[in-house]
Amino acid sequence: MPYVSEPLPSEADALVRLAQGIVLAQGNEFIKELLRDRGIRIGATKADFERNMLAAIYAGDLRREHIELWLNEVEGWGNQHVYLYDVPRDLSISLGDEEALKKKALKAGFQEQYDAGISLEYPPQRTLTRIDYTDGQLSFVWHQGKESAIRKKDRDFRNEIDGDIYDFRAYRIRSERAVTRFVVRPSDNVAAIFIQTPWIEEEHDKVIRDVITVVARVIQFDELRPFAIATAIKKLDAISLNSKGVVAHSTRLSSSGAYIEFGSTSARLGYQDVGPVREVRQAVRPRSFVGLNGNFMLPCADRNGDTRSVGVQLVGEQRRLKLGHQMTASEVWSIVQLVKENL
């Protein structure tokens, strides 16, 4: 894909479409950050963001490279499901050789995708758009355009047609891009598949199979070992007993045919904030249980080191994480690191 710094008319149109999608899909804080970084007027509402962003694109103040840089950090990070894998040391060493990986990727037929610019397209099918090796990590990125319907009650209306009353319910259609990623970070001995579609077992299985089929042409995927998320559930739950920045909203632990579940009814409190419930939790010996699932607020740090808490769901049997907030890449990796430290 050619790289241009000045928006051509067709490129500007693609950027406008992308910007409109971005405004609707991304969190306000992230959009503000992009506009602030470029010195573009921000505004207060999503409508303001969209208007100011489009004006900046037409004026040439917001260009492809700015959006690419920003998208790299925010698009497809957070609000997604993550499957984590441990990378054996021997494989990590071989994955540190960028040139060898590039040769392998090119030999496998990925000339078009290797080091391609960030796609501005909304392909109807999940399409591999980019493979790159940046900052010591190998990434495969797929994009898929999709439409979603947002209920707009204020646009509902009734109409009489042929003597009958019809009730019309309004939905606003918005275009989105779902990003699927496979990233391997040899320095951390970790690899991950990130999926942005809602969890439906068959669908995720299919995505994972497709990802493996592609990735296995470049690296030895069968040497990766999936993380034991069940162990992380128990450990994070135990950490939250001591209030060290980890808050457990709910935890379900099973023991060969039965389970116990602790949960908070409030978004403001972890279940362990409530003394009598924490007393019951203290009576549980974790080694007699397996972590089934847990909803936590976990601390994460962005690239500037600023921290905040984000909602993360861990599902033991599916070895899956669900990141419940829009996040940046740095924040996602800090969550992955936290989970890895608690295996």
Partner: peptide
Amino acid sequence: EIPDDARDQRYCPNG
């Protein structure tokens, strides 16, 4: 409960 900062989400944590 849907926290304030998750009101613009499409799904609750239970999907």
